[in-house]
Amino acid sequence: MTDLIPEFSWETVFLTPWREDVDLTIWIVATGFLVTTACGLIGHYLLLRRLALVGDAISHSILPGLVAAFAITGTTALWASMLGALVAGLVTVALIELIHRHSRIKPDAAICIVFTTLFALGVAMMSVLEAQGSIHLDADCVLYGEMTWVAIEPPLQIGGWTPVEMPGPVLRLLLLVGVLVAGIAFFYKELLLTSFDPGLARALGMRTQAWHYGLMGGLALVVVSVFESVGAILPVAMLIVPPMFAAELSDRLSIRMVWTVVHAAAAAVLGMHLAVWLNCTAAGAMVVCSSALFVLVWVGGLAVRRLRLRRVMRGGGA
């Protein structure tokens, strides 16, 4: 067992990444931070609307969207993948609602039916295209993504001009987070009321269905944007764990959002060091650290409440 775990050395795990390969380290941490932030921010609304499983569903069902986009346009260009994934995401949400509304099937079962079927469809379509030799998608990449490759990609260039000296995918993630933060800040009140009390929202004339689909479209956008760096499965954790972490620390949504960002930064840095130590995938290590941080505040919160209760009992029982 001990042979399996590499020897821990403070020097190589914590200092070397920042001394050598500084660029790579920075971009890996930045990617992890941006991915976790994007997922975590939108994840709050999934948790509040009891849609945690829908994140799971969309992250799987974008696969057929990506393959179909390639089959139709013949390119793996970003815009095509984005469009394909967005359409697949919205189709998933619509199908789930359709099944739920017109049958006795409960929402959780409807979600499972839809996303496994769509994922299977995606796998089948992919193997057809592979057999024709027109595409090669690495299953490992689809499932786990590869953060290290993302970090060494060339910067975005517009006609030979480089606007920012950062890997293209990192810049795209930065834009995504920017759009997300702006969207949440701009429509904070609408998202809040349609999540908290859809009845009043509709009575006030808000189109709750439109907000639902808008949010789901945003979710599809996030999931497809983080797909290349963390794959299809890890976002499921990143959508849910950071909001849970924040929920342990605050009972105000706006403050929880801030905690999500702090958590994303901590998980990214710690995850990078864990990956260096264990020589493993950075994305996986970051999610492990993210969950570890959640367990820490959860157990910590339990202990604090227990202590407080004991103090109150002692004070009051005298």
């Binding site: 509040l48 009140k189 809040l192 009321l193 999540s195 908290f196 009390d197 009043l200 929920a247 605050s250 009972d251 105000r252 949504l253 929880r256």
Partner: peptide
């Protein structure tokens, strides 16, 4: 839901 009394009344 993570909102205060004031948040709800503002709705």
């Amino acid at each position: 839901f993570p909102v205060s009394v004031m948040d709800v009344v503002l709705m």
